[in-house]
Design a protein around this nucleic acid. Sequence first.
RNA 1: UGCCCGAUAGUGUAAUUGGCAACACGCCUGACUCUGGAUCAGGAAAGUCUAGGUUCGACCCCUAGUCGGGCAGCCA
Length: 560
Amino acid sequence: MEENTNTPSNFIRDIIDKDLEEGKHNGRVHTRFPPEPNGYLHIGHAKSICLNFGIAKDYNGLCNLRFDDTNPEKEEVEYVDSIEEDIRWLGFDWEDRMYFASDYFGRLYDFAVQLIKESTAYVDSSSAEEIKNNRGTPTEPGNESPFRNRTVEENLKLFEEMKEGKYEDGAHVLRAKIDMASPNMHMRDPVMYRIKRAEHHNTGNEWCIYPMYDYAHPISDWIEHITHSICTLEFEIHRPLYDWFLIELHLEDRPQQIEFARLGLNYTVMSKRKLLQLVKEGYVAGWDDPRMPTLSGLRRRGYTPESIRNFSERVGVAKRDAVTDYALLEHSIREDLNIRASRVMAVLKPLKIVITNYPDDKVEQLETDNNPEDTSAGKRTIPFSKNIFIEQDDFREVPPKKFHRLYPGNEVRLKSAYIIKCNDVIKNENGEITELHCTYDPATKSGAGDSRSVKGTIHWVSEPHAVKAEVRLYDRLFTAEDPEADDTKDFKEFINPHSLDIMSDCLVEPGLADAKPGDKFQFIRQGYFCVDPLSTEGKLVFNRTVALRDSWARIEKKGK
RNA sequence: UGCCCGAUAGUGUAAUUGGCAACACGCCUGACUCUGGAUCAGGAAAGUCUAGGUUCGACCCCUAGUCGGGCAGCCA
């Protein structure tokens, strides 16, 4: 399949083009994707992954995977593993360039010593509370720490002792000596190192001091020869600090930080904290619940890597906060599945039909296309018999206007089979419809030349051959476009109570009996579905990825 | 009454870098169809936040304002 090759221009590519023209970095382009292993990747990360790996590819450069693991209290190997898996699944390859910020703890320490020697870093023995109180506010300057002017020797000794574990957590921090009156809060002597006795997923108990993001990130980028360090908007104000460390350390060929707006998607939440809350409080079944915007959730839902890459391309890259319409994501997956998913028939809410003029024991094997969009997908046969099931929604005793489906006296075509006519509606003592009696027209067999045509075609399954299945219909997780908009209400108040609808009495065509987890299908006239990872041959479970566009639903709605 | 950033159809992005607004999604019509899907054809929809200025000419440059977002973790 061909992917969108003409990537639209964006301001980051403009910057790179200009850098290349000016001969910066000797014409190299090297990016990195730097997740913190403290949660699962979501669709917003996918945008960043596609951006970073995509740019590297288009400019003949490289993109590293680097785990930003400077806070051992929050990070776990479980997340490292899931992140690797998700990026690979998305279709990107970091080759042998998987790094950890923790790989650089030694060098980071040495660089810190260098700053101390140059009197641009000092050990502050103030408490966290005192540091906070002396930082000032956005409108008022801060106060200098009483420890700000310790001698180099004293700082060196203290910092080394911090490393050696001579002090308790929080007793001292290492700070950059910049400007307590800076209008940019991040330049008011930011903390570089803190003492934290926590086991690190990678370095174990080797260290008891850990660098802060603002200090570790620019240096990690420099160590890896990154040229363009792409991050999200909230780091914009950190940029002067990013540059400050590199300049003070006299590092050449410095990477450039560029910020873009993170992805916003309506009817969902994207913060790791909130997603974690949904998982922990049981609103969803886990990180890979098909309603989650996580990559593992989307994967389980049936989204393909191609569709997510195309989506990421289409949302664009800019510097303004924006919210993308969920419909764009849905369009991306429909577009992909339309050309690759086999069409099959499945009845979600069965309504029995007896074809009164069809021989009792006869069974025909009818031929049908696997995918009309792709002739190479071939054909298959499906059994047809006297007793079949159709969708309850495809019958109305009293049809509304423009209803092209089955109703008393009307004819419809059974997809790939015959035209039938509804003669009798059979009801039980409660007046509920139990079955329909129809007659078929033998002259209208599918593929038997040009027979009559009727307005409606519906799907069906043969009763004796049908296979039972459970089908899970998903809808958006939230009822509000922006569940976080109202700060008098918790976002969880907007959870859609109908986001999961389990249909347990569905019937699918026999060929689906041995469908394997992950297999994707179009249930004709309904939508795209995939086999859930927990599905078994004894109990088939399908997840609805996305419904087909439904213009009848629109017509009907307008009529009301 | 601080600092930083942003503003283009309903939504998200473009605009050969100063030449008079385009693409995608969505929406509406129609054609076609053994999926009310797909496909095809067509359509509505912004005059670029506001007010000035520079210029033959401004979405683009300048000034002032408005609105929105971010910044006071020993989080990233």
